[in-house]
Amino acid sequence: MLRPSTLWLALLLTLAAAGLTFGIGHSRSIASEDRARLAAMAEQAARLDLTDLCLFTEAAYTRHPSQADYHAAFQNHPMALEHFPSGALVQPPPLLRSPLVQWSSAHAVD
C-alpha cells in the first residue's frame, strides 16, 4: 500500500506538472494568434494616432484617461463609478442622477 506521503507528494507534483504543461501549452497555442491580434491593434493605434484603450466607456475621463482633464469628477455620466475615495463619499448632483427627466423639465418649451 502506498504511503500517504508518497501519495500526497505525487498528487502535488502531478498537479503542478499538469498545470505548468497546460499553461505553457495553452499560451503557446494562442501565442501566434495573440501576437497577430495585438499587432493589428497596434497598427490601428499608430495609423489613427490613438492614445487609449477602449476599456471603460462610462465617462470621457475613463474612456481617454491619458487625455482627460486632471480627473474631473462626474464629468459626463450620471452615477459614474469613481476612481477616487471622494467618489465613495460624495453623490453626484440631483440633475445628473436623473438627467432625462430633469433636463426635459428644466428646458421645457412652452
Binding site: A36, R37, A40, M41, Q44, A45, L48, L50, L53, C54, L55, T57, R63
Partner: peptide
C-alpha cells in the same frame, strides 16, 4: 479582433 482599441470608434 481590434475591439480593445476600436470598439466605440
Amino acid at each position: 479582433e481590434t475591439e480593445l482599441m476600436t470598439a466605440d470608434l
